[in-house]
Design a protein around this nucleic acid. Structure first.
Lengths: 151, 151
DNA sequence: TATTGTTATACTCTATAACTATA
DNA sequence: TATAGTTATAGAGTATAACAATA
């Protein structure tokens, strides 16, 4: 296939539109897969963020929310046996969130069951996969505010 | 530039990771810009979804939420003078949400003030813009469940 | 004094169910 | 009977402020 039609360079608004649509669709697929395992999208997102053990405070940073919210989210993960709190070595104030084996298993299931996402990926050529990954990797530091500051 | 390093084809998990990160960063940029204008991200998303007039029920579909939520969201847009309800011609049950001039202006401001997003786009080459737009457009129908059904 | 985690509070988003007015 | 929109209700996410324990 590969159309040879006019390849006009898309404008910022055009790019924003498709990017927003793809982001929303991806998120819905994620939320639906999480819901099938009894997790809200926030809980599932948190589960993904604790694949490596992390203090409560740092987890709030990763999730982009206030630290007070993390208490409740981790409470629920803990009550479901998907993660637990451990005391930190040096500082008795901090608690470290550690994912359990069951938590890791559920996380793998959720990711594997994002059917539409996998379907979308499988519809892509190798060239497209390489291009998408490269563009996202390049754009991410700027978009997330972790770019090298200008000047 | 353009590295000639090993261009390994990324796996599904690798693609999911960068895509999720880009989507989350984009959404945060959007929510922050909306908040500067006193709108929650849901309200701003709804505002973007009514650029063309749409019945309440259809708006719920576009936002991917239950119809009962739309009442409150449109209530707030209406109280802010950003949209209003109109009676539909043929069916007296349906109400059509219409964006106001002020609503359109605020929407334009919000989109224009997504600084990180624009910064990210401006860091992209024309080739990358074309590739990203084309990939997103191709992938969107599958990801959002509007693909041609197999069989 | 500052920091970590928690609790209390309030607001928004969300889904479910029941209601109304139309069809 | 079915549909569009609303209302009531309850659960979860979120931020702010205040608190206890620790640094």
């Amino acid at each position: 296939m590969g159309s040879t039609a006019t390849t006009t360079v898309p404008t910022n608004p055009e790019l924003m539109e498709v990017l927003a649509a793809v982001g929303a669709a991806y998120f819905q697929d994620f939320a639906a897969a999480a819901a099938r395992h009894g997790l809200s999208s926030s809980q599932a997102k948190a589960l993904g963020a604790v694949q490596e053990s992390v203090p409560m405070r740092a987890l709030a940073g990763r999730l982009g929310c206030d630290a007070s919210n993390v208490t409740g989210i981790v409470d629920r993960l803990e009550s479901l046996g998907l993660a637990h709190r451990e005391a930190a070595a040096g500082d008795r104030r901090v608690k470290i969130v550690v994912i359990t084996e069951q938590g890791r298993a559920i996380l793998g299931l959720i990711r594997g069951e994002m059917a539409r996402t996998h379907q979308a990926f499988e519809a892509m050529s190798d060239e497209q996969r390489v291009a998408l990954h490269s563009i996202c990797s390049q754009v991410l530091p700027v978009l997330s505010g972790r770019a090298v500051s200008p000047q």
